[in-house]
Every structure is written in C-alpha cells, then in structure tokens.
Amino acid sequence: MSFTTLKSRTGPALALVLCALPLAGCNMFTRLSQVGETPSLTPITNPTTQAGYQPVSMPMPAPEAPAYAANSLWRSGARAFFKDQRATKRGDILTVNISIADSASLSNQTSRGRTGDESLGIPNLFGLETKVNKVLPNEVDASSLVSANSSGSSTGTGSIDRKETLTLNIAAIVTQVLPNGNLVIEGKQEVRVNFEVRELYVTGMVRPEDISATNAIAFDQIAEARIAYGGRGQITDMQQPRYGQQVLDAILPF
C-alpha cells in the first residue's frame, strides 16, 4: 500500500480524532479533578434565570375585572370563600405525587412482494424492422429488442414489550401564574448515596382547583407534564459506552 493511499484512508479518521480531542480533554480533566470525590450536587438556583428557560405561553381568555355584589362578602371569580394554604402564587410550594405503572405490548409484522416482466420488440413496423440491422449489429433481433424483469420483496417484524413503574413524591415551586389562573410548576430533587446521585425533575401546568386540601397534586392532573428520573455517578458511568464508541455509533452509516 502506497503512502498516498494510506494517507487518503487515514485522513478522515485522523480528522475525527483531532476534533474529538478537545471535547475528550475537557471531560477528562473534569473527571480527573473529581477522582476520589463524591459527585457534587447542583446548587439551588432560580429556575427562571437558568439558560434555556422559556415562559409558558398559552391561549388565554380575556381577563375579567372582579365585581362585588351589594351587601355580600363574595367576590365574583373567587375560587374559595376562606383563604387556605394551597399554592396560588409564584414561589409557593406544592407536592407532586407521581405513581406511574404503565405497560405496553405491541407486535407488528409486514410482508410485501412484487414481480414484473416487460418485453418490447418490433415484429412489423411499415417494413422498417428490416432496417434495424443497418443501424444495430446483425445479431440484434427486431422482434425482441428490449426485455426486462424485476422482482422485490420485503419482510418486517417488530415487537414492543415495555413495563414502567415509578412511585415517589417531589416538592415543586410555582414559577409562573398564567392569566387564566393556571399555575406553571417546576421541581427538582437530588439524592446522593455514596458515589451515585439520583435526579428527579418535573414540570408542567396545573389548575388550582386540582390541588388537594393537603397542598398536593397527582401527576396525571399536570398538563404538558415533563417528568425525568435518572442519575449520575460511577455506576451510571460504567453503564454508558465510552465517548469514542458513541461518536462512531452516531457517524458510521453501517
């Protein structure tokens, strides 16, 4: 193998390695600085100041000014006569009860086949078929100029068997009050056990009427709910492919 051929083959791979070195170096130095240390917990911060935070925007009805009836303590539009301790404004805290027990079983099978056969000739065409050999070689038969056939088949089989069970509670903070009174909540929780950190995240929109007297709400009453449960640490790191393998899995076409 010549040097030029070797260079042309190793060039793309070398460029890929050089591009990955800065990313690998940053992660490598970070991990080296944490050798022997427990995973650090994320500091408590205001969610609305975090990068990527976007206020929720939804279609809202026109606001209605409160009206008071004569000789009445009741205010139109009020949700309760006596004030309680349930979350109603920004910064209030409520409990989210998460109890997920989902299961799904799907099985699909597809089979398809097709066969085609086409032929084309000029047995008779105003006598012009005799002049074909003047243009084409003598071995060409005018009665069977073109013949083509094709066949294709495909078979697909897929199945899904999934079971998910998750039961836990998390405290969330009201980050936004929408014009119609609905609340946007967001909650994060981290628990460290030895060298592993368990992370829980939940966000979504809730109606104040769905919040129970104990200042709690079920996860299935949260609109646009986003629930994430995972972890990070030594065990999670060992379960993940190395960064080189992940890069190759993402770019290799076969």
Rank of each mutant, 00 (worst) to 15 (best):
S57K: 15
S57N: 14
P61M: 01
P61W: 01
P61L: 05
P63Y: 05
P63A: 07
E64P: 01
A69P: 06
A69G: 09
N71Q: 13
S72K: 11
S72W: 04
S72H: 06
L73M: 08
L73Y: 11
L73R: 13
L73C: 06
W74D: 13
W74M: 08
S76F: 14
S76W: 07
A78V: 04
A78F: 04
R79C: 04
R79L: 13
F81V: 15
F82C: 04
K83C: 10
Q85C: 04
R86H: 01
T88R: 13
T88G: 14
K89N: 12
K89G: 14
K89H: 14
R90A: 13
R90W: 02
I93F: 02
L94Q: 01
L94T: 02
T95Q: 08
T95R: 10
V96G: 06
I98H: 02
I98L: 11
I98M: 08
S99G: 10
I100K: 15
I100S: 08
A101S: 10
S105P: 00
L106C: 02
L106N: 12
L106D: 13
S107K: 14
S107F: 11
S107R: 08
S111R: 11
S111K: 13
G113D: 09
R114I: 06
T115V: 09
T115H: 08
D117L: 15
E118N: 07
E118A: 14
S119H: 05
L120G: 00
L120A: 08
I122F: 03
I122M: 07
P123Q: 12
N124L: 12
L125Y: 09
F126M: 12
L128E: 07
L128N: 05
E129F: 01
E129H: 06
E129G: 00
E129T: 03
K131Q: 13
V132E: 04
N133K: 12
N133D: 07
K134H: 12
V135E: 02
V135M: 15
L136E: 04
P137A: 02
V140K: 00
D141F: 00
D141I: 01
S144N: 15
L145Y: 00
V146R: 05
A148M: 07
